[in-house]
Amino acid sequence: MKDIPSPSAVQSQILDAFNFRHACKVFDPSRSISPAEFDTILEAARLSPTSFGHEPFKILMIQSPEKRALFRDFAWGANGAFNGTDGQIGTASHFAILLANTATSMTAGSDHLMTFYREVKQLPEEVIAFLTDAYGKFQQTDHKVTSDREITDWSGKQAYIVLANMMTTAALMGIDSCPIEGFDMDKTIAVLKDNFGIDPKDYKPAVMVAFGYRANDPEFGKTRRSMDDTVSWF
């Protein structure tokens, strides 16, 4: 029987990973993440939970230097403008953009969801009818998520669950990462449409993320609010 680590060992491993992780601004360009390790990061993304299990996200892996350069002028959070480097765009082993599904696919009763229920979830028709009604109520009355912007933002929330799981998985393997919101949304949408075939009616960018190995240790230690300021018990 395979040995299972003790709870205390697992706790230490988790906390060590979270203390190790930081928003890495510059990676060592000479070091690449192995395919097997990055497959684990992507599998963590694929297995991540999402609201209603709808998986309203897509991951674009952008490895070509020429493709990455298309974002350089306006991805100010990733182009090294603040520290005089090539930034995450130029130094990361792996660079991704997480896309959020729009109302076209994520409105209750959409063709996309009907196909998803039948082909991916393999649900019986009576369960599909129940789920469609429940999700419709969630959108219309419970959370009032009905406009394209509201539905896209809801999808983006799910993409952030995926993002967090990818970064935590990476940290557990000693791999650095950095989530990036510092980019011009309209220009990013235009580049995705013109150069990657991403129709903005179907997907909008939620967040960028870079992975690799740090070039230097963090300049400052990790700071957070105290537990008492973070959590209230009732």
Rank of each mutant, 00 (worst) to 15 (best):
S177I: 04
S177M: 05
P179H: 06
P179C: 05
I180N: 00
I180S: 01
G182K: 00
F183Y: 11
F183E: 10
F183P: 08
F183C: 07
F183S: 07
F183G: 07
D184I: 08
D184V: 11
M185E: 12
M185W: 13
M185D: 09
M185K: 15
D186R: 15
D186W: 11
D186P: 07
K187I: 12
T188C: 08
T188P: 07
I189D: 01
A190D: 05
V191G: 15
V191L: 06
L192P: 01
L192W: 00
L192N: 04
L192C: 03
K193M: 10
K193A: 12
N195E: 06
N195T: 01
F196E: 00
F196I: 03
F196A: 02
F196R: 09
F196S: 00
F196N: 01
G197Q: 04
G197N: 04
G197D: 08
I198V: 05
D199H: 04
P200Q: 03
K201D: 11
D202H: 14
Y203I: 03
Y203M: 13
K204F: 13
K204S: 09
K204W: 10
K204L: 13
P205I: 10
P205C: 07
P205K: 11
A206P: 02
A206C: 12
V207D: 13
V207W: 12
M208I: 03
M208R: 08
V209I: 10
V209P: 02
V209W: 08
V209F: 07
A210R: 01
A210F: 04
F211V: 09
F211I: 11
F211E: 04
F211L: 06
G212W: 04
Y213F: 09
Y213M: 05
Y213C: 05
Y213I: 06
R214A: 03
A215N: 14
N216S: 11
N216I: 15
N216M: 14
N216V: 14
D217K: 12
D217Y: 15
P218M: 12
P218R: 11
P218A: 10
E219T: 14
